[in-house]
Amino acid sequence: MKLNSREQNGVIVLEPKGKIMGGPDATILKEAIRDHVNQNAKNVVIDLKEVDWMNSTGLGIMISCLKTVREAGGEMKLSNVTDKIKSLLTITKLITVFDAYNSTDEAVASIGKQ
């Protein structure tokens, strides 16, 4: 998995690419979130359009990121969730835990509105 990071309207947008299945993936994403939160950038969108699939380890990484952001008082949203990942979120009922949006623009715009 590769990870690109950018800012959009004051929100950090993380763009992982590939598959999220464990091994080094956990460290890469968790450290990126922790670094941003430590720099007071607490609101994050994870854009999943380039993620082919993830397994339960990947879902666990997403939950860890969500907890880190929430504990810092921020919000984390998902965008461009592929059908494969959406079906995993549905099976595991994590669809009720994550806020998922069809586009990154929508996800960014939703921050601070709940």
């Binding site: 339960s56 666990g60 939950i63 099976i91 835990v97």
Partner: peptide, 21 residues
């Protein structure tokens, strides 16, 4: 049970559940 409300925010414990699906 990984879909029990008390377990939803656990970071582990979903592997076999997903495989069975």
């Amino acid at each position: 049970d990984p879909v029990a409300p008390r377990n939803l925010l656990r970071e582990v414990g979903r592997g076999i559940f997903i495989v069975k699906h």
